[in-house]
Amino acid sequence: MKPFLDEVSKTKFREKVMGELVGIVPHKLDVSTLLNIVRKYADIIDEEALKREFAAALNPEIEDEKLNNVRTRFQIGLKDVLVEETIQILDHTLLWEDAIRTVGRPLVTRGDVTEGYVQKAIDNIKADKPFIMIADGVIIAHAGVDDGANRVCLSLLTMPERTDVCGYMQADVVIMIGTPDPTKHLEMLEQLNHIIEDKKSLQLLKKAKEPKDIIKLIQKQEKEK
């Protein structure tokens, strides 16, 4: 889910393309220059408003940054959604469909997602066989933003042995994520990614005896950021 270009690359790309298309390099124009040009040919009714419009047009990355700040402010972290009641540590291994229904059960009980959302996640795997393995033995099941997720949520279960997933994957950690918004869950996913990308942390997660052990792992990861 990482962007194809980071912010610096996007800005350079945008400037290059704009320069090639209209024959100008954007940063060589400023608000004062444009205002002076406009004054030659028109009466300016609201100069301050016009300045803001020019500034936004010449520096779209500033507006992007403001938007990103707003999104970040309202994004939800892993600790906000992965709580003891959404973590299950099983002492037996389930068939993959049962594992997904089981990991989705707390979310249905809490009203985070509908039963239809859980079934859609299963149907997606059967129909499309998406590669949803995000780490060794870890899969993340989900449906779409319009398939019955009422809020950003996440649940997790671990099993002692791996189960075959529709003949093309094997998993001993099953995660379900739900979101009705395409951006609010991104911070949560990034934090989850930090944990499972680290082999030591992933092993600690798989060997956890109680949900609170996984909560402590998340808290430790948060402190180390």
Rank of each mutant, 00 (worst) to 15 (best):
M169Q: 15
M133A: 15
V173F: 07
W96C: 10
R52G: 04
G167C: 04
V174Q: 05
Q88V: 12
D64H: 07
N124G: 01
A42Y: 11
L204H: 07
D6S: 13
K207Y: 01
V145L: 14
L204E: 14
V31N: 05
I89P: 11
K207D: 15
T33A: 12
T102L: 12
P182V: 12
V38K: 05
T179P: 10
D198T: 04
I134P: 02
M188E: 10
F74V: 10
L21W: 04
P26S: 11
Q203P: 00
F54G: 02
R52V: 10
D91C: 02
F13Q: 11
I175K: 02
Q221T: 13
P106N: 06
D146R: 04
V25T: 13
I215K: 11
K200S: 07
M188N: 05
Q170I: 00
N124S: 13
K120R: 13
A149R: 08
E197S: 15
Y117T: 09
C153P: 00
K199H: 12
R105M: 10
A149D: 10
L192H: 05
K51E: 15
Q75R: 10
L21V: 14
I76D: 06
D46F: 08
D198Q: 03
I218A: 03
D6T: 12
R39A: 12
L21K: 09
D136E: 15
I37C: 03
K209L: 10
M176H: 03
L202T: 09
T179G: 06
R73H: 13
E61Q: 14
G137A: 04
C153T: 07
Y117M: 09
L94D: 05
I196V: 15
F131G: 01
D146L: 12
K2T: 11
Q75H: 02
R151F: 00
D181M: 01
K207I: 00
K51Q: 15
P160Q: 07
P60V: 06
N68C: 01
V174L: 07
K209D: 11
I45W: 01
V22W: 12
K206H: 09
P182F: 01
L78W: 07
I195R: 03
K200W: 06
G144Y: 04
S201T: 11
G111H: 10
R52F: 02
I76E: 03
N193L: 01
E97I: 08
Y117E: 09
I139F: 03
I134R: 07
M133Q: 15
L90M: 14
A55P: 00
K28D: 14
N150D: 03
G19M: 08
K220D: 13
I196P: 09
K79H: 12
A143R: 04
D6C: 12
L217E: 10
Q203N: 14
E63H: 08
F131L: 13
A208I: 08
T86V: 06
R105V: 00
F13V: 07
G178M: 02
T183G: 00
T11A: 11
Y168R: 08
T163V: 13
H194Q: 12
E187P: 03
A149S: 15
D30T: 04
E197M: 07
G77Q: 04
E161R: 14
D6W: 01
N193A: 13
